[in-house]
Design a protein around this nucleic acid. Sequence first.
DNA 1: GCTCTTTTTTTCGAGCCTCGAAAAAAAGAA
DNA 2: TTCTTTTTTTCGAGGCTCGAAAAAAAGAGC
Lengths: 415, 415
Amino acid sequence: MTVGIRHDDLRRRNRAMVISAVRHAGQPSRTEIAGTTGLSHSTISAISSDLIDEGVLFETKGSDAPSAKRGRPQVALGLKPSAASVITVVLSLNYLSAALVDYAGNVTDQEQRRLSTLTMPRDELIGEMLAMIRRLLAGRHASMKPVMRMVLAIQGITDASARTMLWSPITMHADIPFASLLEDAFGIPATVENDCNMIAMALRWHKPERYREDFIAILLSHGIGMGMVLKGELFTGTQSSGGEFGHMIHRPDGALCRCGRRGCVEAYAGNYAIWRNARQHSEDETPAADISDADMLELADRARAQDGPERQAFRKAGEAIGFSLGSLFALIDPAPVAMVGHGAGAFDLIEPSMREAIARTAGGHHSKAISFDTEPDEMPLIREGCAMRALTYVDHEILAPGNGALTDLTGKSVA
Amino acid sequence: MTVGIRHDDLRRRNRAMVISAVRHAGQPSRTEIAGTTGLSHSTISAISSDLIDEGVLFETKGSDAPSAKRGRPQVALGLKPSAASVITVVLSLNYLSAALVDYAGNVTDQEQRRLSTLTMPRDELIGEMLAMIRRLLAGRHASMKPVMRMVLAIQGITDASARTMLWSPITMHADIPFASLLEDAFGIPATVENDCNMIAMALRWHKPERYREDFIAILLSHGIGMGMVLKGELFTGTQSSGGEFGHMIHRPDGALCRCGRRGCVEAYAGNYAIWRNARQHSEDETPAADISDADMLELADRARAQDGPERQAFRKAGEAIGFSLGSLFALIDPAPVAMVGHGAGAFDLIEPSMREAIARTAGGHHSKAISFDTEPDEMPLIREGCAMRALTYVDHEILAPGNGALTDLTGKSVA
DNA sequence: GCTCTTTTTTTCGAGCCTCGAAAAAAAGAA
DNA sequence: TTCTTTTTTTCGAGGCTCGAAAAAAAGAGC
């Protein structure tokens, strides 16, 4: 039983709507906002006037092109970059990066470094992260507004409340409560998110014309990840970040997977699996820890050059992805797919067998119509997805108190 | 971009909330409603007074047990049975049934009959359905309030807008726009829903303590169907009713499925598949059209009596369901499962190999903790699910116009 | 039998919020 | 300089929910 709507919720929600409209439209006029939200001009005027007073929005005076239209010119509203800032952190295999992002979404500072995540002790891993964040916080100008939110994206599984990393292939340590660790260290609200989910957020942000209501992002890398948006909402599991497409079962009792089980999609389509098959090693062989992008590129080149075990390996990968996508499509119906990550660079080798497999499944009813796109570089997407997620959180916090919001925004400096 | 909340939406939503609270609680007092909705007593008082005036609610005077409590006694509110009525229709293999249900959910009349759905011409199938509905409409008392909604449940796939049956195993005809057909014939709004989705609705209604936010209902019958509730919402595909668990791929290029493809779960776990395996026929053999429940019972008995091809067949079924549930759990995390339908009577034969398979998948992390329940009789569940769905539609229509609602409710008689 | 408690329900005024219409503002066009 | 056109603000009206207080409807106690 959902709770009833009280009167003050109304204002709060409509404020949220206005902020969200500005964030999506960039620099809309009040009239434009009224159009997209369906609220009346008077309401928009009242709300945006409040938000300007509170320092959340501002009138971007220098309207670029004096639109040459008749009538009173529109006044564009923008998100005030100084209204707040957020920190994004991305932790992936042997790699850590963090960025400071202002309220308008601009990266104002960032840092990245290589680490040996697989072998590092737990405390060291956490320590490196905290230190990097600490440097970012120390480095920002005194004039900058306080950091209001931190979002950490990891390769791996988080709990449904986005507070704990339950498991990750990049480290042997499990159940690290990153959200609480970050909150305790810096006094700033934090969440931990799955990297592929952040990729999905970023795609929707970047290419709304293609990735809007329903789409799937598949990360082809050492392992196989997935982020999915259904009916406009990020799809997550009931207890975890979910969407573990890479561990759907392709062949019962089949090839050995990095997760220790058998027959997972990843055990055929992950980099290590393609490598293993290309070398004609046994499918029971323990997966290699890491394979360089250069090696995978070389493998792909050889597969393109001539038929042989390399080409076969990519073919098998396509088959695994195809059948499992077919199973997924049986559940959710076909949707546009983005193939993300370095592995997407070899999509030409994967696509034929993948499409052939899909066509043999229930989801492949119109397999010709299913459209695939490739995004070879995942890191910027993850970072942007994190930023959007963090800023969205802030948007909803800013509107919450309704009135005294600005005392928290411009006032006390945290950490 | 969702639309802003206008002022009158507020009342509408809170009215919906009150109606929904009454429907869930049965006969709550105003105080109780205030508690569950979180709205103030004054608001509840105002809204329920309106709804009583409009003939949607009524004060159930004869309060059964004079609660022996001190203070002014609570006045129970109930849904007025005469506020509206709905018709539910269930179409399954060789079987058609329909019922007339009042606003409080009581079945006031019903009819059912056997048909040869597989061989009937399209028009005859439609004609039988229309005729049955016509008889129900003709048979109701003159005092009864107009039928405001019809919901048809079918075994098969419908489009996302619940207007057309896209495909069904019970007939060779496809793309039958049942919703429009019914609306044109009777002038009453109608939808077509997947039977398993209705089972899920009914389960949530019946056993909310077990089936609440997240659960799965799997129909074990000639084919394999699924209805799923995730985060409190019925899960459907993006373009169709979705959730075609039975056509996830268990073994690529495996056994021949009724759908014409190969390796679907159904091709191992549907009645015809179990039958085929028990008889040690080839997996390439065309599936039998229908197998009687008695035959399946006998098969199960023989499997229980001694090890042999029958027991093997059930074991294979369990394996197929187990691995595919494991894949599903990889996507959504484990959830309580209800095994519904006659096939659930042989769940004891299926369970061991199923659990073993699940344990070998990513979703089987805590396979011991995944709980299964059986509901051998699906028909009543489907009917009740339809009724609840229809009544929920009506609830939302009654509250919509806000004021003149009753003119439609008590006034003109449709059809 | 009467008064006191207790609990539920209704009433009433206050405070918000959104809306539509009208007014004001800010340009270009003539 | 005066019209048009378009955007934005202002203002009063109408609704809605809320909290407090009042009214209603019992049982409890003497």
